[in-house]
Amino acid sequence: MSIEFDTQWPTQAQRQRGLLEWVKAQPRPCWLTWPGRDPSRHRVVVTLLHGNEPSGLKALWTLMASPPQCAVTSHFCIAHLEAARLDGGFVHRHAPGRPDLNRCFGRAGLGWEYGLAHAIAERIRSLQPEAVVDLHNTSGSGPSFAVSMADTPAHRALASRFTERMLRTQVRLGALMELTTPQTPIVTIECGGAMDPASDEVARAGLLRFLADDPLLDEPRGAWPLEVLHRPVRVQLAPGCRIDYGVGPVDGCDLVLPPDIEQCNFGWLDGGTELGWLGPDGLGALRLSDGLGELAVEQWFVERQGRLCLRQPGKLFMITSNPSIALSDCLFYMVKA
């Protein structure tokens, strides 16, 4: 399947009409380029792989008013405009009933989403950029963090341009960051919740550093220390299970989480911390994986009087209060102390 990219920057008239109007009018994905002081080197920014995660695009839109001095030729892929413009704009992660674009990289499948993922990957390979960042928002409210398949100085340097935290994962889902190589390090930046104003600033400030810093892949001196968490575990509901959000157990639900569960994002939680209410199947409603295989739920959680509790201290992150994402993707990730 042949995928064409739009390569024209928004005009002044389009900018005056606003970002959302431009998104609604775009017929295809975009690949835009700013020149740099060194035209022989390249960097790539990918954003809007998920249509409801706009902080990266908002940051780029802001910078268009006064483009920064880029250290090298810098490219911007604005990917899933089709999902972004549905139902008023920035509502859907992907089009209903369609594949998740950020689960299509390095994989074969039916649908134009796989063709677009392949086209993005091929364009990146042809440029041989010195670095790639993929800008996202978390499904729930919470602080920013980076996700990487590798813990190297280059990956830490990229993460440090945007955030104070990096997760080194082995979970492979078909995400862009899984295409990372020693020659072209790729990290995902989760800027925070899409509704959090601070997330847009994380994207804007980090993007400025990513575009201007040279050298880029040296860890910054004197900046904040980067906290690196290894081998996060993905926590999902078992197939066929139901979830709800409330202040107590709900008939017919296998798990009920409190509406403010997102407040647990990235805070250390003590062993025994109560997270929610389990249904008749108890811990059997959960599935855990670290990317290498399934894990025993009982090593991480314990049921106490019908409540889901942590077995030992740990951190939770990427918690969502959106039931559709909780069912289609995951409940959250976690690491032990």
Rank of each mutant, 00 (worst) to 15 (best):
Q236I: 07
A337C: 14
M1K: 11
D196T: 14
E294P: 06
W34Y: 06
P67W: 05
H118P: 02
A121Y: 05
D38S: 09
W31K: 13
R85Q: 06
A205S: 15
P323T: 04
A194P: 10
R15S: 04
G88M: 10
A59P: 10
R311Y: 01
E201I: 15
V187K: 11
K24C: 12
L176G: 09
Q14G: 05
A146P: 08
I189C: 12
P259N: 01
V202N: 05
P225W: 10
F145I: 13
V91F: 10
T33V: 15
Q16A: 15
R17A: 14
G306K: 00
T273P: 00
P313Q: 00
A194Y: 12
A108L: 13
P197Y: 03
V133H: 05
A25C: 09
V297E: 00
L286E: 05
N102M: 09
R221F: 08
T184H: 08
N322K: 08
Q312S: 09
S289N: 13
R43C: 13
H80A: 13
E201W: 15
R98N: 03
Q170D: 08
A238Y: 03
P239V: 04
G89C: 03
A119Q: 02
D151M: 02
Q8N: 09
I78R: 05
V297N: 01
E53D: 02
E113A: 03
T47M: 15
G193K: 13
P258Y: 01
V187C: 12
S324Y: 10
Q312C: 02
A205E: 15
F317P: 04
S324K: 08
M166Y: 03
P96Q: 02
S160Q: 10
R307L: 03
G56A: 10
D251L: 14
E262W: 01
E82Q: 14
G174K: 09
W268D: 00
E82N: 13
P249L: 05
Q236M: 12
T47N: 10
M149N: 01
P67F: 08
Q299M: 06
F162S: 04
T181N: 06
L308I: 01
M149W: 02
G115D: 12
W277I: 07
N102D: 06
H42D: 11
D100T: 07
